[in-house]
Design a protein around this nucleic acid. Structure first.
Lengths: 136, 136
DNA sequence: TGCCTATATGCCTAAACAGGTATATAGATT
DNA sequence: AATCTATATACCTGTTTAGGCATATAGGCA
């Protein structure tokens, strides 16, 4: 809620990447693992950090926890997220994150309904091998 | 130079107030003391922090050290400073800081040339009592 | 029941940080 | 030379943080 807290959340690269991704789409923990290439603990802790400061909200979706930006956001958060988007437009890491996100949106079959396109309404459980619920 | 470093600099209230003031005018340490109402050490340390990260630059002016935003700033810094200004527009503390700055700009006789108006070119040393170079 | 998958948390360590007290330095003034 | 003013720095303390390892929880599934 506080401007300082916003900057505190913004001042770690992993959290910044998480927030940047969330400006595009709600995501569950293993999506972040996948995209960021960081271990589960690390991701989970940063998400907890953000959650503790009201910077993200969660909802349970089957066995997954889906993180998103809070629907009603403080004006300062909104502004800073926009500023962030402007700032990282040309940054290699952040761009790749978005690319990976698009790929994920095409290949991921769970949790259902997260990504609007490319899913064809499939909601059978993901029976593919591998740690994440991806089709091959 | 780094976006993360910018946010690190932004995530302390004192530093945020300092940077916000600097978007208006270059200032010396005792100006900050005066406006922020914080002890000299505290101000000095935060300025050192900012200096160490290239967020401000300094020049010696007689017996004072004048801090300012670097003339050539990274795009991200510029953007974020603007965003900051937007965010704090209605914030009581930040507004008061600016008010105090205007008052200072009228009453301060040293260091010369910092404030363009209200000085009448006086550059005699400040012989008034009190810790700071203010007229009464 | 026992395993698997997704996620969270407790404990640990090393580093950074914020603020305080005391002191140093440097230039100007008396 | 002694003092004053402006500023910086060293040292100390308590707090926060980041990351790692191990473990907990909880819901599905064999």
């Amino acid at each position: 809620m506080d401007l300082i807290q916003i900057y505190q959340c913004f001042c770690d690269r992993t959290r910044l990447r998480i927030l940047h991704l969330l400006t595009r789409s709600p995501l569950c923990v293993c999506h972040f693992q996948q995209i960021l290439g960081e271990p589960q603990v690390k991701v989970s802790k940063h998400l907890a950090y953000l959650r503790g400061r009201g910077m993200v909200s969660t909802k349970k979706e089957r066995n997954w926890v889906v993180y998103s930006l809070p629907e009603r956001r403080a004006d300062e958060l909104e502004r800073n997220l926009r500023c962030l988007q402007d700032c990282v437009q040309t940054d290699a890491v952040f761009r790749r994150d978005i690319q990976k996100l698009s790929k994920l949106a095409k290949n991921c079959c769970e949790p259902c309904g997260l990504f609007r396109r490319g899913l064809n309404g499939r909601r059978t459980s993901a029976k593919t091998k591998g740690s994440v619920h991806l089709r091959s």
